[in-house]
Design a binder for these strands. Structure first.
Length: 285
DNA sequence: AGCCAGGCTAAAT
DNA sequence: ATTTAGCATGGC
């Protein structure tokens, strides 16, 4: 019993922008469609007029896992209405209306962003793909290529540092391995993260070596659903300074405070719009 | 060729 | 309390 495909009606959903926007690193663009893995399921997604068509490799009894991942219940209009009414936000939203946040798995998200340190998005995708091919569980695919799930915490913990370095992780290898081992050794309260407040969960994640505030905030936002959290990376840092403090030179502390207070209850969404806008329009310095 | 990439840590102001 | 070098590796 179950279905191999389903079509979901959507409004204001830019699937291409969302899957390419540097929040998830397991999606591959194949012309009209996207292929990726959510948990242990291979998925192909296709955007049509007013709907997203999904296809899986074996019948599934329900689609709640996909609806949750794509956050189909979110009313984007309500989200956008909470943004501050200033020119930078208006421009960022106008540039890409329909950009969304996904709801990802905690471990895959944490691992991906541990890998993200001083790496470009294309390279993060490459590392994630290599890790999955070498240490992930093979899963059934609807395409013609063999497909693998993202490696489990146990699988990464069992790797040697050298094996991880062979996946081009560089100095990130011990951090990823250490995070997996610390979670298994219960050095942090991993299981309780979903029930914690933002600041509790952030502090817990930052106990891991190689995880600072930026990476912790990405996990809170993209996996934990803390939509008010506003990760500040190099692009956002540039964007905030250029767009909101063109003359002055705000201290890091001041800028952090601004990020935490200016963007409202859906600051994480605002951040995603500004991030994309900065990467496209602020490229020339 | 050289600079920089969805950073973090520890050392040095 | 804030700034800076070093870290691996690859794209451009």
């Amino acid at each position: 019993m179950g279905e191999l495909s389903k079509t979901f009606p959507v409004r204001n959903y830019d699937l291409d922008a969302t899957l390419a926007s540097g929040q998830a690193f397991c999606w591959q663009s194949l012309g009209q469609a996207w292929e990726g893995v959510i948990g242990k399921r291979w998925v192909r997604l296709r955007m049509a007029k007013g709907s997203i068509a999904a296809e899986v490799a074996y019948p599934v009894p329900d689609w709640a896992w996909l609806e949750d991942y794509l956050q189909l219940h979110i009313d984007l209009g309500q989200v956008l209405a909470t943004f501050p009414d200033d020119e930078p936000m208006r421009n960022a939203v106008a540039a890409l209306p329909g950009l969304r946040l996904l709801r990802q798995d905690y471990w895959e998200c944490l691992a991906s962003f541990i890998l993200s340190a001083t790496k470009q998005i294309v390279q993060i995708r490459q590392m994630v793909a290599l890790l999955s091919e070498r240490f992930g569980e093979p899963i059934e695919s609807g395409g013609n290529k063999p497909t693998f799930a993202f490696p489990s915490i146990e699988a990464i913990a069992a790797c040697s540092e050298a094996e991880l370095r062979e996946c081009k992780l560089g100095f990130r290898a011990p951090n990823l391995r250490g995070a997996a081992r610390d979670i298994l050794d219960e050095k942090i309260e991993w299981q309780r993260l979903p029930t914690m407040t933002s600041s509790e969960a952030r502090a817990e994640l930052m106990k891991l070596r190689g995880v600072g505030q930026k990476i912790a905030d990405c996990v809170l936002l993209y996996a934990g659903g803390h939509q008010d959290v506003f990760p500040v990376d190099v692009w956002i840092d540039r964007a905030l300074k250029r767009l909101y403090f063109p003359k002055r030179r705000p201290s890091a502390r001041r800028l952090r405070k601004f990020a935490d207070t200016h963007f409202g209850p859906y600051a994480g969404y605002a951040q995603q719009y500004l991030f994309h806008h900065a990467r496209v329009h602020l490229k020339l310095k």
